[in-house]
Design a protein around this nucleic acid. Sequence first.
DNA 1: TAGATTGTTAATCGATTAACAATC
DNA 2: TAGATTGTTAATCGATTAACAATC
Lengths: 247, 247
Amino acid sequence: MRDRRPCLPVGIIGIVSRGMDANEIRPAISANRVPTPTLERLATYLKCLHDVAQAGVTTISSAALQEMAGINASQFRKDLSYFGEFGRPGVGYHVADLHDRITAILHMDVDQRMVLVGAGNLGAALAGYPGLTEERLHLVAAFDNDPAKIGRKLWHLEVRPIESMGEVNAALGARIGIIAVPRSAAQAVAGTMIAAGILAILNFAPIILRVPPAVLVRNVSVTQELSVLCYHLEAAPTDDPPPHGGA
Amino acid sequence: MRDRRPCLPVGIIGIVSRGMDANEIRPAISANRVPTPTLERLATYLKCLHDVAQAGVTTISSAALQEMAGINASQFRKDLSYFGEFGRPGVGYHVADLHDRITAILHMDVDQRMVLVGAGNLGAALAGYPGLTEERLHLVAAFDNDPAKIGRKLWHLEVRPIESMGEVNAALGARIGIIAVPRSAAQAVAGTMIAAGILAILNFAPIILRVPPAVLVRNVSVTQELSVLCYHLEAAPTDDPPPHGGA
DNA sequence: TAGATTGTTAATCGATTAACAATC
DNA sequence: TAGATTGTTAATCGATTAACAATC
C-alpha cells in the first residue's frame, strides 16, 4: 500500500491476450486488467454511498459498509485497490470523496451521449426513464425502420430513419448505442451502429451479436433472467411433488 | 459417462452450505449444485438450438456449435454434464431433442405465471412484450399503488391496487414476481410479494433487496450495464488524449 | 474396423475471502 | 501510545479449458 509505485494507469498495464488469438467472436476483451465483476460492483458501491451520504454519514469503514449494504468488506477494498488508494487506515473512507472518485473511474463524471434504435415499447420506456439523465447518460437520438414511427416523437426525441444514423451521429458523436429491436433486426442494427462510430452497445435483443474486438457489447435478456428463476422453482405448480397430478 | 451411476437428481445432491451461516443478505444460495454461469448459458444454448433447427439441421456436434454460435465446445459439454447425457459419441446431439430437454431442465416446458408490480413505462413494455408468452411465461396480474393507474388496462391486464396482491395471488398461484417500480418502493414491494407466495423475483429497481434465503432475486440494472460500457470508453469525447482540451 | 465425438477427469485460470503488516 | 482500519499478499474457492478413455 504505502510504497506507491509508479502508479500505472490501469488500462495500460499491458495487453493481456489470454487465449484470445483469433477469437473475433468475443467482444473487446482487450486491455481488460480490471475484472468485469469488479466493474459491475462499482455501480452498486455508488448506490450504497449515495444512500449512506443521504443518511448524513460522512465517513465509513469497509466493515460498516458490509454491515449496512451486504457488501463484503474484503471484496470492497480489493475492488478499490485496482484503481488506487481511497481510504485512511484507522479512519475509513470519506463518503462524498469516494463517491466522486468512483464516478470518475466509470467516466460518469461527464455527460455521455447515447443513440437508441427501436422505438417500440421498450425504446419508449428507456427514453422516458429519468434515471438515465440523473446519471449523466443522455439519449440524443432515436431510430427505427418503421415508416409509421419515423417522424413521431418518443418523449423528447424525434424518431429518425435508421439509414440516417451515420449522418446524424457524425454530428452528435455518441459512442454508446442501445439496441431495442426484435431479434431478427439486431445484427444489422449493430453493424449500422458500428459504422456510425458506436464503440459500446447495450443489447436487449436475445441474440449473440458478432462485433469487431474493439466494440464492447453488454446483453440484457429478460427471458434469460426468468429462465434462471424458473430453474429454481420446483416443478409442482401446486404443492404436490412432480409425479402427481394437481388438484 | 457410460457407467451410469444411480443418477442423482441434481437439486438434491446435498445442501452445500459453503460459508453461508447467518447470511440472510444473499438470496437463496441453498442447494445450488449447478453453477449459476451454467444456468445462464442454458438459455443461450436454447436460442442457438432454435436457430440451428430452423436452418434444417437435425444433428450437431459440440464442435460445430462452437463454430456456429461461438459457444466453447468443452464448456457446452461440461454444462450439459450437470444434468445427464444428451449426445452420442461419434455422432453428436439431436437438435430437437436437446432443445426439449434443456427446456424441461429450466422448467420452461410448462406455463409459468408471473405477477408484475409497477404499471409505468417499463411495466407496460414488459406486459406488451410477446417474447414472454412465446416462452410460456405469462403475466397474470399487474399491480400499482397509484390511484390514477388502478383500474386502467395494461394491455390484457387490469391494474390492481397493490394491497390486493395477497388475495389475488391466492387464486392465481404465481411464484415469480417482477418489480418495475421506483427504487424507493422496491423493498416494500418485495415484502408484499413474498407475503403473497412469490418465490423468485426479477428486480428492475436499482437497489439490493433484502429477502429471506428461500427467495431468489435476479437484478436487471440498465444503469449498471451502461456504467460498465462507459468505463471502457476512453475519456476523450473527440479524438484527443485526456490531458488536452477538445477542438 | 477406423474416425468422430461424447462425458468426464485433470490442469489451468481467475475471482473471492482471509490474514496481516503498514499506518492513521 | 493503543485501537482501528486500510491496502495488499496469500490461501481458498470455483469456473473454464484441455486432454482423453469410452464408445457410437
